[in-house]
Design a protein around this nucleic acid. Structure first.
Length: 421
RNA sequence: GUGGGUGUAGCUCAGCUGGUUAGAGCACCUGGUUGUGGCCCAGGAGGCCGUGGGUUCAAGUCCCAUCACUCACCCCA
């Protein structure tokens, strides 16, 4: 039989890694709550239409990367390839907008895209992200970016990440700009790559972030989207820039930053890591003022970001982060079958006063058990053997200092209470 | 989907131009007198050399195929 292994592009997060994940999740939870954002948990799969309508039929994500299948009743279902669509669906479905004018949400969870795996890119991967519905003022944009910056900082990544921001304007701005850009590109159309030629018709703005040097050269003198901003677009963007400066968040304005999902309006931004390979986008997001309405809700502005957790973890490791898992306070060494019941009983009482207690279910020798205690970096050992059983005592050993003493079994809890206070 | 690189023990790797029972370090297990960890010492376990074909007296080593992993294109977080 062929050896069982995880599916291509999926991976197991083993205990040696999971402490990093827990650390990252703890930072996300803490920072989001500090800003008044609350967690939302959505289903892993949704109706396929949700994503084609929000993310965009022509995007790569929808057109070639989704895991979709037909359910038994014939409806098309899809493993979620991103979360803004789900959160927005949820926002509309539960009519959250009428419960309060502002909704600030965050999420952590797995996503699925059928891409060729490489460093920082998996088929099942994880993102955390936030979404704020209801406010179209630039201070909301600033708050979103500030949260991103704060999380990056607490993960030790802010020194090695660049923030790029741009405004792709409102709908009327983009319509005008799209025409101007097409007029500019049209004479060079034959020199463009096949994908760019295709995008010329489907989504010409995407041509802007091509990596092809030849195409970049052609685009050098292309019109800038900022020249087509409406007055409100300009005010919004300028205000945001002022707010970012006020918060000392460093950024670069990148006129060519356009993002791959169709629902963005006005502010778009991206944090790129210097510590990653080709997949260097750590976190990206933007405003989506038309999305709620497009999915059938009342017109409601929104803005959010999503961050790649695998990429965060890699970048944190590259930055030299060493995280130790939790180590036991006490390793309970039991040397006699008659003592097992007492060992279990005392251990539970110790755990109830908040201590981490580990014991050996293999009935191994003293030497083996203490070696294990040492390996686990336990602070103390408790030893229960024949003599202790006869005396109703237990031996206490400080494994760092090597000091040992005998205490009555009835006094163990008090002893540790005193010791740890 | 398209390229490049790599597949030998749990991990990191060695194995010269094909030649006996395939090695090291780390990790793991057990011991080093009655019940005491780290260091040290001794021993042990663990490999169909990714898989399938081929060439050869002989293949971990050469050839072909295939699969997997990986990096890059692409895409994005």
């Amino acid at each position: 039989m062929k050896q069982l292994r995880s599916i291509k592009g999926t991976h197991d997060i083993l205990p040696s890694e999971s402490n990093k994940w827990q650390k990252l999740e703890a930072i996300v939870n803490e920072v989001c709550e500090q800003y008044g954002y609350h967690e939302i948990r959505n289903p892993i799969f949704e109706g396929t239409g949700l994503f084609s309508r929000s993310v965009g039929e022509e995007t790569d994500i929808v057109s070639k990367e989704m895991y979709s299948w037909e359910d038994r009743d014939g409806t098309s279902l899809t493993l979620r390839p991103e979360l803004t669509a789900s959160v927005t669906r949820s926002f509309i479905q539960h009519n959250l907008g009428s419960q309060s004018p502002i909704h600030r949400l965050y999420y952590i969870g797995p996503l699925f895209r059928r891409e060729r795996p490489q460093k920082g890119r998996q088929r099942q991967f994880h993102q955390f992200g936030i979404e704020a519905f209801g406010a179209n003022n630039p201070e909301q944009d600033a708050e979103i970016i500030a949260i991103a910056w704060e999380i990056l900082s607490r993960c030790g990544l802010s020194d090695n990440a660049n923030l790029n921001i741009n405004s792709i304007g409102s709908r009327e701005c983009r319509n005008a700009y799209r025409n101007a850009l097409k007029d500019y590109i049209h004479p060079y159309l034959n020199e463009l790559s096949e994908t760019s030629q295709h995008r010329f018709n489907t989504n010409p703005l995407r041509i802007l972030d091509t990596k092809s040097e030849k195409e970049q050269a052609i685009l050098k003198d292309a019109p800038k989207i900022s020249e087509y901003h409406t007055q409100d677009d300009s005010i919004h963007f300028e205000s945001l820039i002022g707010f970012l400066r006020a918060m000392d968040i460093p950024f670069v304005i990148n006129h060519k930053l356009v993002r791959g999902l169709d629902y963005y309006t006005r502010t778009v931004f991206e944090f790129n890591s210097l510590k990653l390979g080709a997949q260097d986008a750590l976190l990206g997001g933007g405003r989506y003022d038309d999305l709620v309405e497009a999915l059938g809700g009342k017109p409601t502005p929104g803005i959010g970001f999503a961050a790649g957790m695998e990429r965060f973890i890699i970048a944190m490791e590259e930055s030299g982060l060493q995280l130790k898992g939790a180590t036991p306070d006490i390793y309970f060494v039991c040397l006699d079958e008659r003592g097992i019941a007492s060992t279990l009983n005392i251990s539970n009482k110790l755990r109830r006063i908040g201590l981490k207690v580990v014991l050996d279910p293999l009935r191994r020798s003293m030497k083996s058990q203490l070696r294990e205690a040492n390996k686990l970096e336990a602070k103390f050992a408790l030893i229960l053997g024949e003599t202790e059983i006869n005396d109703n005592t237990v031996s206490f050993k400080d494994l760092e200092k090597g000091i040992q003493k005998t205490i009555l079994q009835s006094e163990v809890i008090n002893f540790f209470d005193d010791l740890t206070n």
